[in-house]
Structures are given as structure tokens and as C-alpha cells.
Amino acid sequence: MTLQNHLATAPVPPARAIEISGLNKWYGAHHVLRDISLNVAETEIMVVCGPSGSGKSTLIRCLNHLEEYQEGHISVFGNALQRDSQSERFIHQTMGMVFQNFNLFPHLSVLQNCTLGLTWLRKKSEREARDIAMSLLDRVGIADLAHRFPGQISGGQQQRVAISRSLAMDPKIMLFDEPTSALDPEMVKEVLDVMVNLAKTGMTMVCVTHEMQFARQVADRVVFMQDGEIVEVGPPEQVLLNPQWDRTREFLDHIL
């Protein structure tokens, strides 16, 4: 499929889920994000890639308020982010996040990890929370491990639990920060399968990942970052197969 072809057949993008404009961030004197401007449409799957230290994690963590930034604006579904508790609550209700090293709560069982937010934040009854969590665990194929503890299951299973835990809060946007890079190769697929299925349900997703197979399969756009800058944005065919920039090409040659 050519680029023209793709643009012609691409549906009109729906409402904007995330708008980032003029985002700048420094760690001390170290300029980590430089003038990032980017929009993510609703139901869009955006893959962010780039060499190590290019600021991918920092960018995605700024979206989720895990990291402060010094300049720029981010708005989510039209709500401008502020550093107040109301804005913070809105952000955490709308966005779920999946981390590179799972960050499951080790003292709680798999099921309790998933029901925690439902019972304490959404004020669901125990039974309701349990039903929701079990159906999600079933969807990612680990319902039979519900009563194990995180230390007793494999990395791939842990990451699937982490995804269910986020999905239990019914987010509109899911952020993934290298969800498969801490996994052994044979477990990568089981997590990617879950993500592909999630993408098909119309979830808005921002994924930092180096799984180019995944990007080609489901991404609507791929962002390539280097040294805190967005070097290239476009549909996967363009960025991955026909990169306009030397740096992108170098990087892709490296990891493919």
C-alpha cells in the first residue's frame, strides 16, 4: 500500500483525546523534552519508538502526571492539565498505565490487585468488583491464576495482570511504557496478543515499544523520537519502511 493510498482510505480522525503543545522538560540543566507537540485522536493507536534515553518514558509519564514539566500544555479530552487534585483525579480516571516492570502489588493476590481500585475508588461491592475483575482476567486468559500472588506467576502473566488491573478502572486511554522489554522472548507474544485485542476494541493507546511487528500490525501512527525531539511522525508504512530521516533509518536498521 502506498502512502497516498493509505491517506485516502484512512477514516476521518475522531475527536482529539490528547493534545500536547510546546512541551519542554528539564532535569536540572539536562533538556529532556524539546518542544514536543503532538495530538492523539480518540481510538488512535500511537506507537512511540526511539533510542534509549531519547525521552520516550518521560513523555508518556508527563501525560499521566507522574512527572512534572516546566513548559507547555497538555489537554486530555479538552481538559487542560493542571497541578490540582481535581485535574489529577480526572487524569487518573481517564488514563490507565502499564509499566515496564509490571509494578504489581506483591502483598495482594492477582484478584485483589484488580479489585483494589474498584472497591476503594469506585465503591463497588465486593461481589461486583470480583465479577468485573474475573471477566477481565478471563479476557487476558489467566482467570485460573486469580488466587496466586504476583511472586508466583511468570513475567508475561504478571504483565497481563497489570493490564487487567488498569482496565478494571475502565480508562478511556491506555499508556504502555515498554510493556514487553522486561520479558523473556517467549512471553512477549502473549502480552502483545492482549494489546492487539485491546486495540481492536477501540481503545485509545499510546505505546512506547520496540516491537515493530506490533507497530506495523495495529499502529495508526508511529512517532520516532531522538534526544528529546520528535524526529518523525507518520503511518507505520511511512516511518518504518520508508523513513525520511537518516537517524530513523539508522535506528531501524539497528533493531530490525
Binding site: 499521566n64 483525579r89 487518573h92 488514563m95 476503594w120 475508588l121 488498569s166
Partner: peptide
């Protein structure tokens, strides 16, 4: 990571401390 996971679920300070 435990604090970050709790925060991204939307648990506030007191719940993060008490539950996690």
C-alpha cells in the same frame, strides 16, 4: 514503582499508604 502504580490507579496519598 509501587507508588507510581498506585498513583496511576488514582489512589490518593492516604490510600496509597494504607493499602499499598
Amino acid at each position: 514503582g509501587q507508588y507510581e502504580a498506585a498513583q496511576s490507579l488514582g489512589l490518593g496519598y492516604s490510600m496509597t499508604m494504607l493499602l499499598i
